[in-house]
């Protein structure tokens, strides 16, 4: 009773955040377990699988010991969790570097790409949806509907290739799809890892122009492909509210149209937040294709390399980091969702 009262007296936001944080721990544990089992369930000797065919017997014996392969599965899992908590994700036999370092090097490239892409995707999708609901039956509405449809059928890799073909090969407007920055330029000193921001901090406008220019096509690809899904979702959420008695009542009260749009948008916010977080998580995986085409050098490409090289330790590390990232994104989204929807009890 007493603790409950103390809990109730805390600000709503704090309660929401604390509940989410408490949930992250078991979820993270589950994710780790799955990443662990992914390798354990493989037929064959995990040490040989992870170290590859060219490993010496000596190194394999060493690795077996490190993993505790002679012990039972749960002890092994405990060792694995222990290693991860120490920041030891293992070493990649291909890059000969600690996997955590590899991942940390490549993460900013991917994050920069998908963050811009999500902002553009959600912004474009929601705008199209709102305009087409408010101007229902107009040519814009029809165009939006056809786009929402067709976009879902576009493979991102095809769109990326076509954009490269048109804007690089035919028109020559876009830079070649090789990396995040012109090879002739120096990388600005790392602060955030986002080249567009770091270059501005360093005052290097040439680097900024190059980084921004090279972001355009990949971001455009992701936006074109995914904004359709956002449009469809936002359209159904927004139009449901637009047709609800709530909006009818505001209109009957003489509230100006533009305020009604704003209130309806505010009402559609919770599902839009969930979808945005879903897209952010989805893109971490889906950007793999775009990264490959634009030689982006991010996490996705690293994962593809790992698959091609049968580098299971690196793959395991990537799966773990990606899942953790998605978990955090979803948790933040859940928090925002509860904050913007006063109906949810905490």
């Amino acid at each position: 009773m007493r603790t409950r009262d103390i809990w109730r007296r805390q600000p709503r936001l704090l309660r929401i955040v604390l509940i989410r944080l408490a949930l992250i721990v078991p979820q993270m544990f589950g994710v780790t377990l799955v990443a662990f089992l992914l390798i354990r369930l493989l037929p064959g000797d995990p040490a040989r699988l992870i170290l590859g065919n060219f490993a010496t017997d000596e190194s394999i014996a060493l690795y077996r010991e490190k993993l505790g392969l002679d012990k039972d599965v749960w002890t092994q899992f405990a060792i694995y969790v222990g290693n991860i908590l120490k920041g030891d994700f293992g070493t990649s036999p291909f890059t000969s570097r600690p996997i955590l370092e590899d991942l940390a090097d490549r993460a900013p490239a991917t994050l920069e790409l998908i963050l811009y892409a999500v902002i553009c995707t959600v912004g474009l999708g929601v705008t199209i949806a709102v305009v087409s609901v408010v101007k229902r039956g107009s040519p814009f509405d029809w165009g939006a509907r056809i786009y929402g449809f067709a976009a879902g059928a576009l493979p991102d890799f095809l769109v990326a290739l076509l954009l490269v073909f048109v804007f690089f090969y035919l028109l020559g407007w876009a830079p070649a799809p090789f990396g995040r920055l012109d090879l002739m330029l120096n990388t600005p000193p790392q602060v955030t890892g986002f080249l567009t921001i770091d270059s501005l901090i360093a005052g290097d406008f040439e680097a900024f122009r190059s980084a921004a220019g090279r972001l355009i096509l990949p971001v455009l690809t992701i936006t074109i492909v995914n904004a359709g899904a956002v449009t469809k979702m936002a359209h159904s959420v927004f139009s449901e509210i637009w047709d609800s008695p709530i909006v009818g009542h505001m209109r009957a009260c003489g509230v100006p149209e533009q305020q009604i749009v704003r209130a309806a948008l505010r009402n559609s916010l919770p599902p839009i937040i969930s979808v945005s977080s879903f897209i952010l998580g989805f893109l971490l995986g889906a950007a793999v294709l775009v990264e490959t085409i634009f030689s982006w050098g991010g996490l996705g490409q690293y994962a593809v390399q790992a698959v091609i090289n049968s580098d299971y330790a690196a793959l395991q590390g990537f799966v773990l980091v990606a899942s953790a990232f998605i978990l955090v994104v979803y948790s933040v989204a859940d928090i925002l969702y509860e904050v913007v929807d006063p109906r949810i009890r905490t």
Partner: peptide, 8 residues
Amino acid sequence: QSFPVFVL
């Protein structure tokens, strides 16, 4: 479902 589809 909390794993990235593509990576999984």
